[in-house]
Design a binder for these strands. Structure first.
Length: 205
DNA sequence: TGAAGGATTTGT
DNA sequence: CAAATCCTTCAC
């Protein structure tokens, strides 16, 4: 029996758990970006951060607003916001409807270089999606994708780990590191950041 | 209606 | 280490 790509699609139910459980489980999963012209870019998730209710660093900490409302919705949608007047950040909404939580995708190991990337500005292929802002720039993700469902046919979706990745993880050929989150003024002590050890695509190893 | 600041990145 | 740069939030 062959495992096909369709068998690995991540369903919303798998994401309907606390973000601190989902965040490490997303390492090794594949983020797929499909453009209107059909160009498809795939990359393995190598760095994540969890944001949860009661967490002072969570955008929803002080309640529901127009910006953060998608975090309160059902799991399996994209939460995209604009930051520092320059960058976008891409999150995956997790947990039950009404529970504001999400996982920030901080870095991808791309399988190919998007056609629109200027190789002179990005000399190192493995650094193209290393960091949440760079990742969104590399995949052309902006607020137009805020709230979209992550499923095939939409602009973005998720696929589970390959059997090879699972094997390497079981062998300890691949290991994860859990540390404090980056760039926060509150909640910085919580160890809610995970990344793949020794991966050149991680934003800050 | 205005001011402060931000889940970043880059170059000095 | 500071600038870039603009949206969101909260106070007045």
């Amino acid at each position: 029996m062959n495992l096909t790509q369709a068998d690995r699609i991540v369903e919303p139910s798998w994401l309907a758990r606390p973000s601190t459980e989902v965040a490490p489980d997303l390492l090794g999963c594949c983020l797929v970006r499909q453009m209107p012209d059909g160009e498809t870019i795939r990359g393995a998730i190598v760095e994540t951060e969890a944001y949860a209710p009661g967490d002072p660093a969570c955008h929803a900490y002080r309640g529901r607003t127009e910006r953060n409302q998608v975090m309160f919705g059902p799991a399996g949608r994209a939460y995209v916001y604009f930051i520092y007047g320059v960058y976008h950040c891409f999150n995956i909404v997790t947990d039950l409807e009404g529970v504001p939580s999400a996982v920030l995708i901080r870095a991808l190991q791309l399988e190919s270089v998007p056609s629109w990337i200027d190789r002179r500005k990005e000399p190192k292929p493995h650094r193209i999606a290393a960091g949440p802002g760079k990742l969104c720039r590399a995949l052309q993700i902006d607020r137009q994708l805020n709230g979209v469902e992550l499923r095939p046919g939409e602009p973005v979706w998720l696929e589970h780990r390959t059997p090879e990745f699972e094997r390497d993880l079981a062998n300890s050929a691949i290991t994860f590191v859990q540390t404090a989150r980056i760039g926060l003024s509150a909640g910085a002590q919580l160890p809610w950041r995970w990344y793949v050890a020794s991966c050149r695509a991680v934003s800050k190893p």
